[in-house]
Amino acid sequence: MRTVRPSRVEIVEVGPRDGYQSIVPFIPTARKISFLRRLVGTGLRRVEIGSFVSERAIPQLRDTAEVLAACRDIEGIVPQVLTPNEKYGRAAVNAGSKFVAFVLSVSEAHNRNNVRRHPRESVEEYRRLIAALPDGVDVRLNLATSFDCPFDGRVAEDEVIALLDDLVPIRPDAEICLCDTTGRAAPDHVDRLFARAMDRFPEVSRWALHAHDTYGLGLANVYAAWNRGVPVFDASFAGLGGCPFAPGATGNVATEDLVWMFRRMGVETGIDLDALVPVACDGAEIPGGLPGGRVRHALSAARTT
């Protein structure tokens, strides 16, 4: 398979969802909206602004509908919302969402812990949701635990491919994101799984990687996916994150770290790193947050010496 390494990549900012969801002290809605404005001001466009999900499960995101409504007044933003089932997917669309990210887990243990369903049941929920979507709604499909499960360990590549065999035909034009939920993937695994998936599903035009940096391999895994031809990457400003359903998982790779790496490689992101670093520094100070990443420290120190 011939690999074309993208000369420009899209970074999807997921901090306002993945970065916030494990924070216990409630972040005021106005502050969430302020961060969105500042993030978009750096050149970021697609932002996962929250999730339509049970308020009891993730109380931090109970204001997602209000945040989504505020996005109408933020020029340039493409608000993406996460949903784990048909019910909340419909709620997202009814609230005005034009970009829905449906998530299910390859691992049965994780999917049952997350949404109390077998993965095959989630496949059918995805099928029903897609059938019900009106025209004009973009779709991303997130496959959590594509590489590793917090309960069962390494996930077999064959399991991922088998699940995609059922999912891809439902919406072939959906963007498909393979997620390293625990951060335990390694670059060779990332390269091999994307190579298999791309070869088997040539009809999928947009692949993405959702990487965590729990074991310090987030950037290496992003590089492996880019080297295989993946053009879309999730990241979280200040490296904020952590999954309530994946014990020990820290945040996504930091957005500023990705921008720095790609800039040094000569790959366009459209993001102003000088504008992003102050936002990341403020994000790292959110009470209860778990920040990560290195670039904001290095650049901030360089500016003061």
Rank of each mutant, 00 (worst) to 15 (best):
V9F: 07
R17E: 00
Y20R: 08
Y20E: 09
Q21T: 04
I23D: 04
P25I: 02
S34W: 13
S51R: 07
S51G: 00
R62M: 05
E66N: 05
R72P: 09
G76L: 01
Q80Y: 11
E86M: 14
G89S: 13
A92N: 09
N94L: 13
H118E: 06
E121L: 12
E125P: 04
I130T: 15
L133G: 08
R140T: 15
G153H: 02
E157C: 12
D158L: 11
A162V: 13
A162E: 15
L164W: 01
I170R: 00
D173G: 05
L178Q: 11
C179L: 10
A186D: 13
D191Q: 14
D191V: 05
A195G: 15
E203G: 01
R206C: 06
W207H: 00
L209R: 05
H210I: 01
Y215I: 09
N227W: 11
G239N: 05
L240I: 00
G241T: 05
A246G: 10
A246Y: 10
P247H: 08
P247Y: 07
P247C: 07
T255S: 04
T255E: 06
T255D: 00
L258F: 04
M261W: 13
F262T: 12
F262I: 11
R263Y: 08
G266C: 02
V267M: 00
E268F: 11
D272H: 08
A275Q: 12
C281H: 05
A284M: 00
I286N: 00
P287L: 03
L290W: 10
A298E: 15
S300V: 14
A301S: 10
R303W: 09
